[in-house]
Design a protein around this nucleic acid. Structure first.
Lengths: 209, 209
DNA sequence: TTCTTAGTGAACCATTCTGTTCCTTATTGC
DNA sequence: GCAATAAGGAACAGAATGGTTCACTAAGAA
C-alpha cells in the first residue's frame, strides 16, 4: 500500500563530523536519532523498523541493537534528546505584551512542527491507541509543557489587565496550539503569517477583558 | 511493529440481512464499506489491503476485486456513501440561537468522529502527504462542508446581532471543529459535555458583539 | 426444478520483511 | 605500531504478506 517503496536515502546519508568515514559516539547516535524521527514522520511507528532506520542513518543494524532493544526505545530517546527532540522546555517569553508573547510561543511551535521532531509527532498522536505509552511521553514532553507555558502567559496578561481572568483556562490555552497543529497537518505549507492571524483574529479577541 | 497482530474479527462478522448464509448486493457492499472504514481507522491506509478488508468483512477477496480494483477506490466509495460515510451534507440547524446552533453542529461532528467514518479520517489526515488525492476528497466531503455550514451559522448570528460581523471568518469558523477534532484524538474518551464547554468557554466569548 | 451468477474459503507463489549473525576494517587509546 | 572496540555492509533464515486463481455451492430468477 505504501506507494513510496523502500526507504530512500536522506541527507543524513552525508557523513558528517570528523575527517574519517565512520561516525562514532555522539555523532552516530545523533544521526540515528534524527533519522528515526524523519522516518517516523515519513511513515508511521508501525512501519518503523531497525532495518529502515539503519538504512536512513547510513549505518548498520548492529549499531542500533547495541544501544536500544526496540524501536520504541529509540523513538523515546530521540524525542527526549534536547538537540533532536523536545528535551528543551518552552519558557514564557515575557515580552511585556500578550500579543508578542503569544506570537513568540506559537511561532516556536509552528517551527517545531515543521522540523523532523514536530513532523514525527503526527503519527504518534494520530495512532495513539496503538502505542499509548509513547503518546503518554508526547503528552508529557510536548503537549503539557506548551499548555502550561501558555497558561502562564495568560495568567500574567490577566494580572497586567490585558486578559479577562475568567478566560485563563486550559481550554482557552489549548486553542492556539490546536489551531496551529491542525493548520500544519491540513495544509501543504503553513503561511508564515498564519500565527499572527490566529493570534489577532482568534486569541486576542477571545481573551480581551 | 504492529502489536496487534492479524486483523481480528469484528461485529461485521455477524451475518446480517435475510435468513440465508450469504450476503449479496447492497448487504455485502455495505458490510464491506463499513469493514473498510473500521480497518482504516484501526491501522492506516498504507496497511490496508484487500486481504485484510475481506477478512474483516467476512467475505472473500474475489468479491472485492469484482467491484473495486484498488483499496483507494474502495475507501473513496465507503467515505462517499450516505449510509456508512459522509455522503450526507451537514445543514444549518437554525434553532434560533447561536449557542444552540453551534452545539447541534459540533455535537454532530463529535458523534461522527466516534463512528468508524470519523475514526477513519484520522489516518487520512495525519498521512495526507502519502495519499493527497484521498485527502482531497476528505477535504471536499467533510472539512469544507463543515466549515461552510459553520460560516452560515455565524453569518446568520451576526445578522441577528448575536455575533460581531468582523468575527465571521473561516479562521474563526474552524476553531470549533479543530478543538473537537484534537480533543477526540488526544483523549481516550470525549466527555459528552466537552462540546458545550467549547461553545460556552471559547466560541461564544470569541464571537460576541 | 434448472440454470446462471456470484459469494466463500482456500491454495498458490513470488516477494518482502526483519531479527540475527558474521566478517572486514576504521577508529581510538595506550 | 598494536590491540581492542565497534561501525558498516551483507548474508541468512524463516515468517508474513498480498495479488491471483480456482473449486464448490448458495442464492435468485425463470
Amino acid at each position: 500500500m505504501d506507494p513510496e517503496g523502500a526507504a530512500t536515502r536522506t541527507s543524513v546519508q552525508a557523513r558528517t563530523g570528523g575527517s574519517g568515514t565512520r561516525r562514532r559516539g555522539e555523532a552516530l547516535t545523533g544521526a540515528i536519532g534524527l533519522a528515526t524521527l524523519e522516518e517516523l514522520a515519513r511513515t508511521s511507528f508501525e512501519e518503523l523498523s531497525f532495518d529502515k532506520i539503519a538504512a536512513a542513518a547510513g549505518t548498520g543494524k548492529a549499531a542500533l541493537y547495541r544501544r536500544w532493544s526496540t524501536p520504541a526505545e529509540l523513538v523515546l530517546a530521540a524525542l527526549t534528546d534536547p538537540a533532536t527532540g523536545f528535551g528543551d522546555v518552552p519558557a514564557a517569553p515575557r515580552t511585556g505584551t500578550l500579543r508578542a508573547d503569544l506570537i513568540a510561543l506559537l511561532t516556536r511551535l509552528a517551527r517545531a512542527l515543521e522540523e523532523p521532531r514536530g513532523r514525527a509527532l503526527r503519527p504518534l498522536i494520530a495512532h495513539r491507541h496503538r502505542h499509548p505509552e509513547l503518546f503518554e511521553h508526547v503528552h508529557r514532553l510536548v503537549i503539557r509543557p506548551h499548555l502550561e507555558v501558555l497558561l502562564t502567559v495568560l495568567r500574567e496578561a490577566a494580572e497586567r489587565g490585558e486578559a479577562a481572568p475568567e478566560r485563563v483556562t486550559e481550554r482557552v490555552a489549548s486553542v492556539g496550539p490546536r489551531m496551529i497543529t491542525l493548520e500544519a497537518w491540513e495544509c501543504d505549507q503553513m503561511d508564515p503569517r498564519e500565527v499572527e492571524a490566529v493570534v489577532d483574529e482568534v486569541l486576542l479577541p477571545l481573551v480581551q477583558p
